[in-house]
């Protein structure tokens, strides 16, 4: 495991925990897209089914379980415990427009036509677009709380670090996975606009708000 991969994983973990803590401490999920969080829970569930079939390492197993556990906890906080604070009216992205094409693509373009492989591929494709409901919500309300932008930054950083990890692995291990790379590039591109706003506004102490 190279340093980019490790920091990518840690950044991903930081994102998940930042979001969970933000909701827990403020007792509110205002401004958070429950739909994106459901999509991430689906992503982790379909990708980590191999927990049941193969053991890779203690690190691998524990991280997978933490990701799954935290994503379900987040969904629970949004849709059950702090449901009263959930801003459903602004969370109006139609997720079927993501799930259906992504499911079709996973069936068409995969490494192996088997259930676990198709679900793995589905999770890779779905992850690349799972943040869209959240970005859509921000574009609708025109603003995001600073802590929410830290969450998004860590999510985007995680993806960017994974891209560097794949370049590294290609050079030093001759390893590459086209499905993961293409989806990873798409996912990282989706964050570019946000990265720009984060650097030009949030890091200078301003709240992230979009021009009307």
């Amino acid at each position: 495991m190279n340093i980019f991969r490790l920091f990518g994983d840690l950044s991903h973990l930081a994102a998940i925990i930042i979001l969970l803590l933000k909701i827990w401490k403020s007792r509110s999920c205002a401004g958070i897209s429950g739909k994106s969080q459901i999509l991430f829970a689906i992503v982790f569930t379909t990708r980590y089914l191999d927990l049941l079939t193969s053991f890779i390492s203690l690190y691998n197993t524990s991280m997978k379980m933490i990701y799954i556990g935290c994503s379900y906890a987040t969904v629970y906080l949004i849709y059950a415990k702090f449901r009263a604070t959930y801003d459903g009216n602004h969370d109006s992205f139609r997720v079927e427009f993501l799930i259906v094409p992504v499911g079709g693509l996973a069936v068409l373009i995969n490494h192996d036509f088997s259930l676990l492989e198709i679900l793995w591929t589905f999770s890779i494709y779905l992850e690349s677009v799972a943040i869209l409901p959240q970005l859509f919500m921000i574009s609708k309300t025109g603003e995001a709380e600073t802590i929410t932008t830290h969450y998004l930054f860590c999510q985007g950083l995680y993806r960017a670090l994974y891209l560097i990890n794949w370049i590294w692995r290609f050079y030093f291990e001759g390893f590459f996975d086209m499905i993961a790379i293409v989806a990873g590039v798409v996912q990282t591109i989706l964050y570019c606009d946000f990265f720009y706003l984060y650097v030009t506004k949030v890091l200078k102490g301003k709240k992230l708000s979009l021009p009307a």
Partner: peptide, 10 residues
């Protein structure tokens, strides 16, 4: 093999 390497990632 490729598949095992890939599955090592999160």
């Amino acid at each position: 093999n490729n598949q095992q390497t890939r599955k090592d990632e999160l």
